[in-house]
């Protein structure tokens, strides 16, 4: 019988790719059994049982169906992620998943927009959509050139990359929102996929709505069980669970998620406004 996705797989870190000063990709062996093959946009629960003990949801950034490997890209933003960043090849983490829904492909020409470490799920989508022969333009945004993610990888799979940095050190100078407005002047798309800081996604959402482009957005919330029962990641006003109905939501769904781009709840349930 195939293992339940809720069962932990204690996995050795097989390789660590230093992507930027603050971002690393951790590679693990992962048996691509039925029901456990990750789809673009899904996430894993990553359990650290030594040192800083905790467990957090992390996007899958590499799906190696043929070599039975997955990659998880993590930005060093706090105690937990700092602990993970200090781990070495051969160290172990507990993994369960993959969880959540996935990006879908609608149409032939697709705009993929990723901000910062939000490029993680975007990258797996782009590779997948390229395999299906889709034409993909990628807006890869970050604060500066050294923080851009996966540029070579996505270039190699045949996507058109449009880099965009806040300080203008690589490509367009400005925010992903500006780059999106800019690119829509010359091109039209059948759909878009978006992942990044929620304030960025909110801006992109308004732009894509004006341009009548249906899109899918990857959301993030504090999670506990990831199995759809604890209620921690439920969204206002629909009650949808980010771990089950999400993390990917369509434009129509985003319109019903009143907290999108406004607030989120912490571990105790207290709201924090953006």
């Amino acid at each position: 019988m195939a293992k339940s996705i809720n069962e932990y797989e204690i996995s050795e870190i097989k390789d660590i790719i230093i992507e930027t000063d603050t971002i690393k990709t951790f590679i693990f062996d992962w048996d691509m059994e039925e029901g456990r093959i990750p789809k673009p946009g899904q996430f894993m629960m990553v359990w650290s049982f030594n040192g800083k003990q905790d467990e957090k949801p992390m996007s899958i950034s590499k799906i190696g169906i043929n070599n039975n490997e997955i990659g998880i890209t993590i930005k060093n933003v706090g105690e937990f992620t700092n602990h993970i960043h200090n781990l070495e090849i051969g160290d172990k983490l507990g993994l369960r998943g993959p969880y959540g829904n996935n990006f879908s492909i609608n149409g032939n020409k697709i705009l993929a927009i990723g901000g910062g470490v939000g490029m993680a799920p975007i990258s797996t989508f782009v590779e997948y959509a390229r395999e299906k022969g889709k034409e993909i333009d990628v807006i890869s945004a970050s604060i500066t050139k050294d923080e851009l993610l996966f540029t070579n990888r996505l270039d190699n799979c045949g996507a058109n990359i449009f880099t965009c940095t806040d300080d203008g050190t690589c490509g367009f100078e400005g925010y992903a929102t500006h780059r999106t407005i800019n690119i829509l002047e010359d091109s039209c798309y059948d759909m878009a996929v978006v992942c990044g800081p929620e304030i960025m996604m909110k801006g992109i959402f308004n732009i894509l709505e004006d341009a009548s482009i249906l899109a899918e957005y990857s959301m993030e919330r504090y999670m506990k069980c990831a199995m759809g029962i604890c209620g921690q990641c439920c969204l206002d006003n629909t009650g949808w669970r980010v771990c089950i109905e999400g993390p990917i939501f369509t434009s129509d769904q985003i319109k019903q998620i009143i907290e999108f781009g406004k607030y989120h709840r912490d571990a105790s349930g207290v709201k924090h406004y953006l």
């Binding site: 209620g231 206002d236 006003n237």
Partner: peptide, 14 residues
């Protein structure tokens, strides 16, 4: 208690 009961939205869905 304790299941999908952390906010009004999820409880209204139930």
């Amino acid at each position: 208690a304790g299941v999908m009961g952390s906010n009004a939205s999820s409880m209204n869905w139930i």
